[in-house]
Design a protein around this nucleic acid. Structure first.
Lengths: 216, 216
DNA sequence: TAGATTGTTAATCGATTAACAATC
DNA sequence: TAGATTGTTAATCGATTAACAATC
């Protein structure tokens, strides 16, 4: 069955999709070819009900009395996540974090092709990371026009993040993966996904002290 | 007014606290000393109602007819987040990502003191990053016993993550900040905060294609 | 067929928003 | 004081869970 024509998938559902994707891949690697929502739920830590609800936002991928075919479901989730397509990506900010992302091979396998990194530091410009060049920031506009960029990964310091975003706003970049601890103002239609490490660490810090805080 | 004795703060509330912390810091830096929930809401993008609800989980920090004293509220949120304390932290896995975190100075300012990094790669062992040594993994147990570690940051590849966690489970580490794309099994009482970059990127990928997906 | 498990509707639960009396 | 804005209760909204008929 094909996808449904619903238009409002909640973000809670969307953020569970990559987890399904990961667990289904693990199952495939373990040569498990069939799974019920109950079993999958036990594995991931979701209720069977939630899994069935989530999947049925996109289509009826299971079979009564049988469950789900792991490979088929994996392919469907991959498609839903847009992994049947390829993406041109660039990294802006070639410091440790930018390099860490450039070096991670997992994204390439999923269809995200890193074309270049950009930086303003002359010591970094000209370098190659896994064969990918670090270019001067002043080449950004030209580069995007020439090659087309789907996703820009912002790994620059906080104070440069909006300035960079303004440049990206003028180009037709589709999405920004933002690692700077700032909320970016983007042009209409550009999608931003934030990874805010500080917020994550402070959440951990809170949780470490919650008991004491609420009983004190 | 001091903290209340409620015991169930929802995780949704908790994850907004670091955002309050960040915006209040920005306001202080801009020498804004007073703010209403309405103004703060406009700034962050929350409703005034939500902000008042959130803050009142922890105490009545405002004043009718006036709003909130920015400095006072900032201090309260800092305390709630546990930032009135110091934390000994270590990084396990001194590759690019581990180094990126080690190089980020923001965490130190918040009271997170990096004591050491650990790795198994002889090319990394013995190095210093911002003056912090990279030690051999086989020194981990001894080091934790000797210095006491509140938070271990796991920046190792996926396949080593659980093995490392098992070591940490035997020691009295309080929290794990996990960057490996895996769900860790931890001993009771240890708190895990995951940063799953793959899941974040796949969410972005989904959102880039949602329109097309749901209309196709 | 009988058993299992889905897809889907209904019930429940929790989080967000609205409203307003309290009060600075 | 009058105006503003909180703290808090009530109403609404949305997400999760439970239940079960459909069906493989």
């Amino acid at each position: 069955m094909g996808g449904k024509n619903l238009s409002n998938i909640s973000i809670a559902v969307v953020r569970r999709l990559p987890k399904y994707h990961r667990y289904l891949k693990d199952l495939l690697d373990k040569e498990v070819y069939r799974i019920s929502s109950k079993e999958l739920g036990k594995l991931i830590g979701f209720t069977a009900s939630q899994i069935r609800q989530d999947l049925n936002c996109f289509g009826g991928f299971g079979q009564q009395g049988y469950g789900y075919n792991v490979e088929e479901l994996y392919k469907e989730i991959s498609r839903i996540l847009g992994l049947n397509k390829n993406y041109n990506i660039i990294i802006i900010g070639a410091g440790n974090l930018g390099q860490a992302i450039a070096n991670y091979t997992g994204f390439g396998k999923l269809g995200f092709e890193l074309l270049a990194l950009f930086d303003i530091d002359p010591r970094l410009i000209g370098m190659k990371i896994k064969g990918i060049p670090v270019l001067n920031m002043d080449k950004l506009d030209e580069f995007i026009s020439e090659h087309g960029v789907d996703i820009a990964i912002v790994c620059a310091p906080k104070d440069f993040a909006q300035e960079i975003t303004d440049k990206l706003n003028k180009k037709n970049v589709r999405g920004i993966w933002n690692f700077a601890p700032a909320d970016l103002n983007v042009a209409e239609g550009i999608i931003v996904e934030n990874v805010n490490l500080s917020e994550s660490l402070l959440t951990l810090s809170y949780l470490l002290n919650e008991k004491e805080l609420l009983s004190g």
